[in-house]
Nucleic acid binder design. Sequence first.
DNA 1: GACTGAGCTTTTAACGTTAATATCTGGGAG
DNA 2: CTCCCAGATATTAACGTTAAAAGCTCAGTC
Lengths: 352, 352
Amino acid sequence: MQHTSRGPTPHGHVTLVQVAQRAGVSAQSVSNALNNPDRVAPETRKRILAAVEELGYEPNLSARALRNRSSSLIAFKMRPARPDKASMLMDDFLYVLNASAADAGYHLILCHAEDGPAGEIKAYRDLLKKTSIDAFILAETHRNDDRVAALRSWGVPFAAFGRSWDGDEEVAWVDVDGCAGTRAATAHVAAQGHTRIGHIGWPADSELGEDRRAGWLDACQERNLDTDLQAAVVDSLENGRQAAHRMLDAARPATALVCASDTLALGVMRALHERGLRPGADVAITGYDDSPTAALVSPGLTTLRQPIDEVGRQLIQAVDNLMAGDPRTPQHVLLEPELIVRDSSLPGRRDT
Amino acid sequence: MQHTSRGPTPHGHVTLVQVAQRAGVSAQSVSNALNNPDRVAPETRKRILAAVEELGYEPNLSARALRNRSSSLIAFKMRPARPDKASMLMDDFLYVLNASAADAGYHLILCHAEDGPAGEIKAYRDLLKKTSIDAFILAETHRNDDRVAALRSWGVPFAAFGRSWDGDEEVAWVDVDGCAGTRAATAHVAAQGHTRIGHIGWPADSELGEDRRAGWLDACQERNLDTDLQAAVVDSLENGRQAAHRMLDAARPATALVCASDTLALGVMRALHERGLRPGADVAITGYDDSPTAALVSPGLTTLRQPIDEVGRQLIQAVDNLMAGDPRTPQHVLLEPELIVRDSSLPGRRDT
DNA sequence: GACTGAGCTTTTAACGTTAATATCTGGGAG
DNA sequence: CTCCCAGATATTAACGTTAAAAGCTCAGTC
């Protein structure tokens, strides 16, 4: 049946030339049939596509990358997982990021770098020199982020998970509204009748932490509640535990504690436990991130779930738009987290 | 100062030709200086390397891939994270995999596929056609794994996280000895004086589950302990809870429960809680995986930590050896998990 | 003084693709 | 009947690299 003069390459790769021979046209026509359908006669196109199908042709991305200076690769740098971190956001995040990238015709390539911003920037530059990466995805951006500055100066498309805190309109970003999230959690416990609502958050140098704290402050002020109970500590279970003890030892102790992370909230639960108090029934607790642990502890921890799937999708869409040369200003997407109510914030009959 | 006839390309990429001009040699000599140092005179080599350094030359991987049919890319397919899974192994795993790959001069590319083995195999094939991937890393292999068969039939180097349960010597794999892990956990609780040690594991169709169960069985038989208390349930907190209740309701109830996962063990802790029993003091509990949750619950959960870093390193080394055409038979590496002892298995004075 | 060969370097061609340009058809206008 | 143009297809060259082959230089041999 096969009447072509040459069989498939020994490597099993089908090339344009082979398809062309099969269809009785030139390689360029095959290329056109696939990339610029209007440049070939409908009749010919049909014949070519049939040949493509029969031979199972797939364009060689290396050759394309070389010719077009575009590799359909999107790069992302992972950070090492912190051992005490309760959340497993990164895992899910990478998965959807990759799935969305695949849907849009890209592949995700992981980038490794020495710790620190300088190492990361160097890694980006090396990758760019070597591979004509199409775009970058950044995570955990912060104020005056050197990575943002570097990528912009090189003119590479990129999008950040984390808003541009500098107010830089030229940067495409997707973020989750931490303020709205904490506000929702605070409103929720206020609705249970709590009036002494404390907040355990992070040190003031973290934009993310300040954003989340702001929601608690807003919600309290709207309701004319006291805002004297607050702590700013480094994220750890032990710090959450100690902060909780302080707030429960206060002259007018807290009856609800809104935390900036599940890790801190779990520390609070431990403190309650040590005092013989029941989460939910005696003191309401909320966390942030909906880590797997939040669902597994008893009672379950009320927390905020970030729409991580949507973040991934939007990030890919953002860079895709940039690459398409979309004239509109870079996308800015602020997503709402979802309040997951469990027993830790409800005065129900769950035992401690 | 610059006396070369052409400046850098408008795209900022430095090419071999530019380096060659700078050093006053041919492009091939530059290539040789970098890849086959012994083919150029030491003097010339020095001059070339200086030019490389000055211009910041990095070889273009697309061109190399095209020419050499080798992209220095290693592909890995992520699975969607299961929502109730307590472990965050995947996150760490990917990180070390990528880091090791980078050390060995490779990049990691993520592969996306429709669910199911057929979709995964198709995705591998497409990727191979398109990109001359150098090697694949597989996770969670099982008996009669179609993916293994496919990759072998294509002659692509690959290594699996998970031993070849078929006893196939030709497959390179790295795995963690679940049997040894569970045996260690069982020995540990036996050393605390427990004689009624139950096991809560997974259905018999899981090789991993059977491996872990075997360790419990071995350890019990070595000590002439009863092995009548065992359960085989799908991995979930609720199933662990129910199984624990059954074993505590037995005529001669369990005083220690060795579990095949942290998720199951957390279910056991909940069951104890419901009965007013104290983990550790009244009933010893052990889990498996050292999920973040294990360290965060109170009392801490005794569990087994997989040496995931080492797994990642060994996998990369395995494919690297294969690609180097190492004549030795493919590597098989079985690593020992580490028993992490916490209060859930100790008769200490920790309150419940 | 021609011949050999070792040591080093350059030239050529190819990997698979595609933009740019060239060539080939007919059909319609003059 | 020639000329021109539009539409379709083919040819050329280039992206950056490297294996293979060819070329060059100089010391040593007979």
